[in-house]
Write a protein that binds this DNA or RNA. Structure first.
Length: 515
DNA sequence: CAGTGTTCCC
């Protein structure tokens, strides 16, 4: 039986089957179509991609008697999505013509692979004027392009670049749809400018669950719990249905300022009022909320009562709480379990070792480091980055490869001398090493965020805040150090660690030392 | 009837 003449109907059928996960039935229909056109082929290729059958997709693409730009776009996007960005790029270069969708697929491929520079480069390379190619497509960056690039800016903390894209959007009348606004809020939030994020939120014509959840999440990570609750109230008044992710933001908002009861209320509200089933993320937030506030036993009980398998992240959250509250006994139990689960994750060893150090139990801390060495577990280096004149500079703990190394160390030493005169004394308990005090102090004094701060003081405008992004959590000593820098050098510093933001100004931090 | 984009536990 054949479907001659019915190519349009057959194509719709193929698409339908593939969208339901029944790609093999789709393929049967495809095989019986006599007069297959390029759209029919594309639908089948895309159908394989949707079902994760990348090998068959590429095989069918290679068999195609005729291809248009969409055919190529499908496979470029497919390779980008499965992390084969090199293959995506070679197809992108090989294709006879590219439209805006081809460029967008390639840009997002780079972003997903973490190659932010390449993504930015491609954005700049895009023909900015309307070029009429063989299929008449527009290759000017559009709203999809900016949404693909903005998360990279947020990830890097590249505020200048993000602001430049925002102005590009306005200059070129790129449509400010809900995706663009959401991406802008996220970018500004992650780059430390919560005011700009709020402005975009207030001006957004259309507000949906994504946009509001993003705003709540941003306010949460900046420690602005009341404002986050306000956005949630707005959602309820406006009839915008909260999602499980909205509640992740609300729970984080509570845990960052220690609002235990309100957090528990939100947790219960999820299922009671909104029929949302708490996921492992929500339990993770709850453990953090309880543990950080000192309710370690309750946090432990929460983990034990979770309806799903506790992910290592949840245990790690409890271990962090043990560090804050110096509970060595529970920390040992949790860490041993974690090390069993993830023997190669350096974080667990380092955290327990830091807990021993904080308790003055240097022998045990040293023993743990020995175990790390024996198992070949490498300590993840602390890395801080700072954006100056549109470039992002990275610093590592004890970094000695920067071209302006000498100048940076001299500046840092001057800052340290000045702060010591004001009463700063390095908190050596934050150091992992069981070496003598002097060496311990050296390790601590050259933590990556201190190097980045020195570089910032050296290179940025005196009025602007110094914005730093760190890959790990800021240590006690750096936290004290930054507070003092803000006081005695009259500069505000905005530091994002892997957990939240710290806004330092005039000797204090926005986290009120609750972290 | 095919191809590009947004939030989330450490």
């Amino acid at each position: 039986m054949g479907f001659g003449g019915l190519v349009i109907a057959s194509t719709a059928l193929i698409d339908m089957y593939c969208c339901c996960g029944m790609w093999s039935v789709g393929r049967e229909v495809f095989d019986r179509v006599c007069d297959r056109d390029v759209i029919c082929w594309n639908t089948m290729v895309a159908g394989y991609v949707k079902n994760g059958n990348f090998f068959s997709a590429k095989e069918l693409f290679d068999e195609m008697p005729e291809r248009n730009v969409s055919s190529w776009n499908t496979v470029v996007d497919m390779y980008g999505k499965c992390g084969e960005v090199g293959l995506a790029r070679s197809l992108f270069d090989e294709m006879p013509a590219r439209d805006v969708i081809s460029w967008n697929a390639m840009v997002s491929g780079y972003v997903k692979d973490g190659e932010c520079d390449a993504a930015r480069g491609l954005f700049d390379e895009m023909p900015k004027r309307n070029v009429v190619s063989w299929n008449g497509s527009d290759v000017k960056p559009n709203e999809v392009t900016v949404v693909a690039v903005l998360p990279a800016c947020g990830h890097l903390g590249a505020l200048d670049l993000g602001q430049w894209i925002h102005s590009y959007i306005r200059r070129n009348r790129v449509k400010m749809d809900v995706y663009v606004n959401t991406a802008l809020i996220d970018m500004y939030g992650k780059c430390g400018s919560v005011e700009d994020a709020r402005r975009v939120f207030d001006n957004a014509e259309m507000k949906d669950t994504f946009l509001c959840s993003t705003m709540i999440e941003v306010l949460a990570m900046h420690g602005k719990a009341d404002e986050a609750f306000g956005v949630f109230d707005y959602m309820r008044r406006a009839g915008i249905k909260p999602s499980d992710i909205t509640f992740v933001g609300l729970l984080k908002a509570c845990s960052h300022v220690g609002l235990v009861e309100i957090g528990v209320e939100y947790f219960e509200m999820m299922s009671k009022d909104f029929e949302l089933v708490p996921k492992v993320e929500h339990y993770g937030c709850l453990v953090d909320l309880l543990g950080r506030a000192g309710h370690l036993e309750k946090a432990y009980e929460t983990i034990k009562s979770m309806p799903m398998e506790p992910h290592p992240i949840v245990w790690g959250t409890l271990l962090s709480a043990c560090r804050i509250h110096c509970n060595v006994k529970l920390a040992e139990e949790v860490a041993l379990h974690l090390i069993e689960l993830e023997p190669q994750n350096c974080g667990h060893y380092v955290l327990l070792s830091n807990i021993y150090s904080k308790a003055g139990r240097w022998n045990e801390a040293a023993k743990l480091r020995k175990i790390m060495k024996e198992k070949g577990v490498m300590k993840k280096p602390g890395c801080s980055s700072i954006e100056v004149d549109n470039s992002v500079y990275e610093f590592f703990a004890g970094d000695c490869v920067h071209p302006r190394r000498k100048e940076i160390y001299e500046t840092l030493d001057k800052i340290i001398t000045r702060l010591k005169a004001e009463g700063y004394s390095p908190k050596t308990s934050s150091a992992l090493h069981d070496v003598d005090i002097d060496e311990k102090e050296q390790t601590l004094l050259y933590h990556s965020e201190k190097l980045a701060a020195a570089f910032g003081l050296l290179n940025t405008n005196h009025k602007a805040p110094i914005r730093i992004v760190k890959n790990l959590r800021i240590c006690d000593d750096c936290h004290v150090f930054m507070k003092m820098v803000s006081k005695y050098f009259g500069r505000s510093l905005i530091i994002r660690d892997c957990n939240r933001f710290h806004h330092f100004s005039d000797g204090s931090c926005s986290c009120c030392d609750y972290w």
